[in-house]
Computed example of a mutant assay.
Amino acid sequence: MIINHKKIHRIRKELNLVRNHHYHPNPPRKRPKTHDITKPNLYWESDIKFVPTKYDGHIPILSIIDVFDKSIVGVYIGNSIKAKDFITTLRKVIEYRKVNSEKLIIRTDNGSKFKAKITSAFMKELNITHEFGYKNNPNSQAYIKSFHSSVQYEFVDSIEFDYIEDEYNYYVSYIYFYNNSTWFIKIFNT
């Protein structure tokens, strides 16, 4: 006997074997656009890079880059990175650099740390414009991706790390070399 799938669905519905479908719309996201950056602290990009260690596994490094002068303004290194770690790092960088957060634009990828409700609430609280890059398109975050490419080539591929502490110490030196400045925001979580 051949029965149409629509008839089976109707019969299952009459017998209460079909659940009600709840539509969950995705909230609108601010998509990237081109910006004219004329001075520092107007437009930042952030992303996470995983660096392997011998005994502690792959350690995530959260980096924030200022697109105007290509300097790394904030870094978080820990065994894991959660939305609260991104918020804490961002808050410390804003306080240290005395940034007017209402003029700040931050572009990230679509990772769960960046799309979290507490991240969204934090951005609204400080009136920060939060943009999301396109999926599978590294050009929408070209500056931080380029920096991570440099990290891979100059830092990860040339040094083998045993523990997270080794990675942290080398990374502080690398950022100092990369920025050629004397400051670095130290946030370390083990």
Score class of each variant (00 low, 15 high):
residue 71 S to N: 10
residue 72 I to V: 15
residue 74 G to H: 02
residue 74 G to Q: 02
residue 75 V to G: 03
residue 75 V to N: 09
residue 76 Y to N: 10
residue 77 I to N: 08
residue 78 G to E: 00
residue 79 N to Y: 09
residue 79 N to W: 03
residue 80 S to D: 02
residue 80 S to N: 13
residue 81 I to D: 02
residue 82 K to P: 06
residue 83 A to I: 01
residue 83 A to R: 03
residue 83 A to W: 00
residue 84 K to N: 07
residue 84 K to A: 07
residue 87 I to A: 14
residue 88 T to Q: 04
residue 91 R to I: 04
residue 91 R to L: 13
residue 91 R to K: 15
residue 92 K to G: 08
residue 92 K to E: 13
residue 93 V to M: 12
residue 94 I to Y: 02
residue 94 I to W: 02
residue 94 I to D: 01
residue 94 I to A: 06
residue 94 I to L: 04
residue 95 E to Q: 13
residue 97 R to A: 08
residue 97 R to Y: 13
residue 97 R to H: 14
residue 98 K to V: 03
residue 98 K to S: 13
residue 99 V to C: 10
residue 100 N to F: 12
residue 101 S to A: 09
residue 102 E to T: 11
residue 102 E to D: 07
residue 102 E to V: 07
residue 103 K to D: 08
residue 106 I to H: 03
residue 107 R to C: 06
residue 107 R to P: 09
residue 108 T to V: 05
residue 108 T to K: 13
residue 110 N to K: 12
residue 112 S to G: 06
residue 112 S to L: 13
residue 113 K to C: 12
residue 113 K to E: 10
residue 114 F to G: 10
residue 115 K to C: 13
residue 115 K to N: 14
residue 116 A to F: 10
residue 116 A to V: 04
residue 117 K to V: 11
residue 118 I to E: 13
residue 119 T to Y: 06
residue 119 T to C: 15
residue 119 T to V: 12
residue 120 S to G: 14
residue 120 S to Y: 14
residue 121 A to K: 15
residue 121 A to P: 06
residue 121 A to D: 11
residue 122 F to T: 03
residue 122 F to L: 03
residue 123 M to D: 00
residue 123 M to A: 12
residue 124 K to I: 03
residue 125 E to I: 02
residue 125 E to C: 10
residue 126 L to A: 02
residue 128 I to P: 14
residue 129 T to R: 12
residue 130 H to C: 10
residue 130 H to Q: 11
residue 131 E to T: 11
residue 132 F to W: 04
residue 133 G to L: 08
residue 135 K to G: 12
residue 135 K to E: 11
residue 136 N to E: 01
residue 137 N to H: 11
residue 138 P to K: 11
residue 139 N to K: 14
residue 139 N to T: 09
residue 141 Q to A: 05
residue 141 Q to Y: 03
residue 141 Q to F: 02
residue 142 A to Q: 01
residue 142 A to D: 00
residue 143 Y to N: 11
residue 144 I to K: 11
residue 145 K to S: 10
residue 145 K to M: 02
residue 147 F to M: 08
residue 148 H to I: 12
residue 149 S to K: 01
residue 149 S to R: 01
residue 150 S to D: 09
residue 150 S to G: 08
residue 151 V to S: 15
residue 151 V to C: 13
residue 151 V to H: 14
residue 153 Y to P: 00
residue 153 Y to L: 04
residue 153 Y to C: 07
residue 154 E to Q: 14
residue 156 V to L: 02
residue 157 D to E: 07
residue 158 S to G: 05
residue 159 I to Q: 03
residue 159 I to T: 14
residue 159 I to L: 07
residue 160 E to D: 06
residue 163 Y to D: 04
residue 163 Y to E: 04
residue 164 I to S: 03
residue 164 I to G: 08
residue 165 E to G: 08
residue 165 E to D: 15
residue 166 D to R: 04
